[in-house]
Nucleic acid binder design. Structure first.
Lengths: 354, 354
DNA sequence: CTTAGCACTCTCGCAGGGAGAGTGCTAACT
DNA sequence: AGTTAGCACTCTCCCTGCGAGAGTGCTAAG
C-alpha cells in the first residue's frame, strides 16, 4: 500500500492546494471533481487523497472533513508543483513608476516597498533599510542649535544617517564647529569603526593632541553611533499591511491578530531569518514550522534580498498564513527586489549592462 | 420628576463610572451597595440611577441590564467628579531617567514617549515630532555618493532633517560640493521658504547668476523639501501600544481592532484634533462622539502639546475606548508632556527658572 | 484500477428551557 | 418625603438535544 507519488496524485495535490489557498476551506473529493471537471469519480479521488495523506502531504482535522495541505505539501507545491505567474506588464509598469516618483528619497522607498508588497500580496510585509555590512564613515556635520547644544549629523558610506545632540560647556560658534567638522572629516575619510577608535586612542596618548575636548567628545559619539548602526544591521524592520492581512479569514480571532502584531513588532522569528536570506540570491520561502520557531508555525514568509554586496543590501518580503498565495507572493517579492536593486545600482553608479 | 443633580447622585455616578472603568461590566445597584458599603438599600440606589439616566449621564442596553455611562457622564466625571491621581514619585523617576538615557537622540524620545504612554495607560499612544510652525533653513550638506549622485542633507531650524538624493550630469568632487554647500548655507541663513524661493528667482533673472546649475537644482530641492516639511507639520503621527490596547476587553472582536488600526495608521480623526491641541496649554480630553467624527464615537483621546511656541511643538497622548482610566491617562500625558518640554527647553537653552 | 453504495462521523445551526441577574413599580415603613 | 422590601417582568447566557449536511472510509461489484 506504500503509495508512489504518481503524476495524477501530484495533479490532485496541486488542485487541492490551489483550491485551499483560494477558499480557505477544507477541500472535499466532490468539490475537486465538480470544480475541475475531473474524469474520475469522487471515490477515486478519495482514494488518491488517502494516499497523499499517508505520504504526509495532506491532513484533515476530523474524520468527516475535507483535506488541507501540510507544510510538506506546501513545500512540494512551491518547489515543483505550482505555476509561476509573473506580474502583468501593467502591474510592473505601475510599480516601477511609483518607485521612480520617490527615487530621491530613501525613506520613501522603504515605505513604498512595504505598501506595494502588502497591497499586491494581501499579506503583511517587511522591509529593512539597505545597509552595508561594515559601517564606514562618510561625513560628519556639526550644527549649533544654540550656545552649548550641538546637533551632530553623521552620514555613513551606505547612506544611513544618525543624528544626535550633544551639550557642551563652553560655547562654540558655527564657524568653530565648521573647522572642527572639517578636521574630523579629513581624518576619518572612509574609516571603519576600528579606525576611528584607533585615531581617538592615539590622540588621547599623544603629547600634542590633534583634537580638542569637543572633538574628542564628538569622536566618542561617532564611535558609539557607528557601533549602534553596525549592530542593528537590518535589525530595524519596517512593516506594513496589518490591515490587509486582517482580510484573511485566519485572522477572525483576536488571538491570531495579536500573534501577528507581536511577530511584526518584535521581529522575533524574522530576525533570525535575515542572515540566511542575505547569504543567498533569489526568493526564499519558509513555510510554517520549517524553522523551529514555535510562534511561526502557522505562518509562512517569502523573502528576498535586494541591493549588492559591494554597497548596501536589505531584505524585503511578505508574511502571512501558511495558506498563502505563494505564486503571487513570490513574483511580487521577486519583482520588487529587482526594482530596488536597480535603483540602488543606479544610485551607486553601477553599470548593469555588464 | 425633573431631577436635580444632588450631591448623592454625583457620588453614585462617580462610583458607577469608576466601577465600570475597572470592570467593563454594566453596573447594578446591588454591586454598588455591596462593593462600596453604601448605607442605602439597592432600591434607593435604583431610584437614583433612574434619575441619572433621565438626566442623560447613564444608559443601559436593555431593561434588565446594569448601567453604563454616556459620553456626557464621562464628561462630567472628567470635569469635576474624578480624583486626580498623580503618578507616584517612583514612576516619575523611572520615566525621567529613561528619557535622560536617550537624551541625545530625538528619534528615540518619540519612540520612548510612545512606549511609556502605552505601557502606563494600557492604551494606544500617539506622538508627533516636535516641529516649528514655520520651516526655517538651518544647514545644508552635499555629499558625493559617487560621480554623479549626491546626497543632500537638509537640516531645519527645529532640528528636522530631510535627506534626498540627486543625480547630476557632470561629475563633481567632494571639494566642489563643499564649496557649493558653503555658498548655499551663507545665502540661506535662517531663511524661510519664501526667502529661498526669492533667492532662486532673483538668481534666475540675474545677468550674472551667483549660483550654477547644480546649485539651482539643489535650491529647488530645498524648496520642495521645506514645503513638504511645512505641510506635514505634525502630520506624521507615531503610534504605539497596539498590543497593549488589545488587552482591553472591547477589542475582543476583530472589527474593533481593525477600526483602531485604521485610526492609528491614517491619523483620520486624530489629525483634525491637532490644531486644537496646539492652540491651548494643558491636557485635553475628547470623549467618544464629542467631535463629530463617526469612526471615533466609541473612543476617547487624551492629548497634550509639548515644547514651546518659540522653538518647536509637538503633540502626544493616548487613545482608547471611552471606558478609559481617565485619571491615570491624564496624569501620564500631563507628566510626559512636561518631561519632554523640559528636555526641549534644555536643548534650546531656555532658562526654565524665569 | 475504478466506481457506486452505504454506514458512520463530525460540524453547524437552531430551538427550547432553565438559571441568573437586574430592573421598575407598588405599597408599606420611618 | 424619603427609604425600603417585595415581586413581577425582562433579557441574557448557557446548556442540551436534535436534525440537516457534508464528507469520509470501506466494501463489493463493474
Amino acid at each position: 500500500m506504500a503509495g508512489e507519488l504518481t503524476e495524477r496524485r501530484q495533479m490532485i495535490l496541486k488542485l487541492v492546494i490551489q483550491e485551499f489557498i483560494e477558499t480557505a476551506q477544507p477541500i472535499s473529493s466532490k468539490i475537486l471533481v465538480e470544480r475541475y471537471g475531473l474524469t474520475y469519480s469522487p471515490a477515486t479521488v478519495r482514494n488518491e487523497l488517502a494516499v497523499l495523506e499517508e505520504l504526509g502531504y495532506l491532513t484533515h482535522r476530523h474524520t468527516s472533513d475535507g483535506r488541507i495541505p501540510t507544510d510538506m505539501g506546501y513545500r512540494l507545491f512551491v518547489e515543483s508543483l505550482m505555476d509561476r505567474v509573473p506580474l502583468s506588464p501593467a502591474e510592473k509598469r505601475t510599480i516601477r513608476h511609483q518607485f521612480y516618483q520617490v527615487r530621491s528619497d530613501l525613506d520613501q522607498w522603504i515605505e513604498l516597498a512595504g505598501a506595494v508588497l502588502a497591497r499586491t500580496s494581501q499579506n503583511a510585509s517587511v522591509v529593512t533599510m539597505p545597509r552595508a555590512y561594515e559601517a564606514r564613515f562618510k561625513h560628519l556635520e556639526l550644527i549649533a542649535i544654540h550656545d552649548t547644544t550641538i546637533l551632530m549629523v553623521l552620514v555613513l558610506h551606505d547612506g544611513s544617517i544618525k543624528q544626535q545632540t550633544l551639550t557642551f560647556d563652553t560655547p562654540r560658534t558655527q564657524e568653530e564647529l565648521r573647522r572642527s567638522s572639517n578636521k574630523l572629516n579629513e581624518h576619518n575619510y572612509e574609516a571603519s569603526v576600528r579606525a576611528v577608535e584607533d585615531l581617538l586612542q592615539t590622540d588621547y596618548a599623544a603629547v600634542v593632541p590633534v583634537f580638542d575636548d569637543l572633538e574628542h567628545k564628538v569622536l566618542e559619539m561617532v564611535i558609539r553611533a557607528m557601533n549602534q548602526l553596525e549592530e542593528q544591521i537590518n535589525a530595524k524592520i519596517h512593516s506594513d499591511g496589518l490591515l490587509e492581512i486582517l482580510n484573511q479569514p485566519e485572522f477572525s480571532q483576536v488571538q491570531r491578530v495579536r500573534q501577528m502584531i507581536e511577530i511584526l513588532q518584535s521581529g522575533k522569528g524574522l530576525g533570525s531569518l535575515i542572515p540566511q536570506v542575505l547569504a543567498r540570491d533569489g526568493v526564499q520561502v519558509v513555510i510554517g514550522g520549517e524553522h523551529g520557531k514555535d510562534e511561526m508555525r502557522e505562518y509562512s514568509v517569502v523573502l528576498a534580498r535586494y541591493g549588492s554586496n559591494d554597497h548596501a543590501v536589505g531584505v524585503l518580503g511578505v508574511i502571512g498564513p501558511t495558506r498563502m498565495a505563494y505564486p503571487r507572493s513570490i513574483s511580487t517579492v521577486d519583482y520588487i527586489s529587482t526594482v530596488m536593486s536597480d535603483l540602488l545600482d543606479e544610485m551607486y553608479g553601477v553599470d548593469r549592462s555588464s
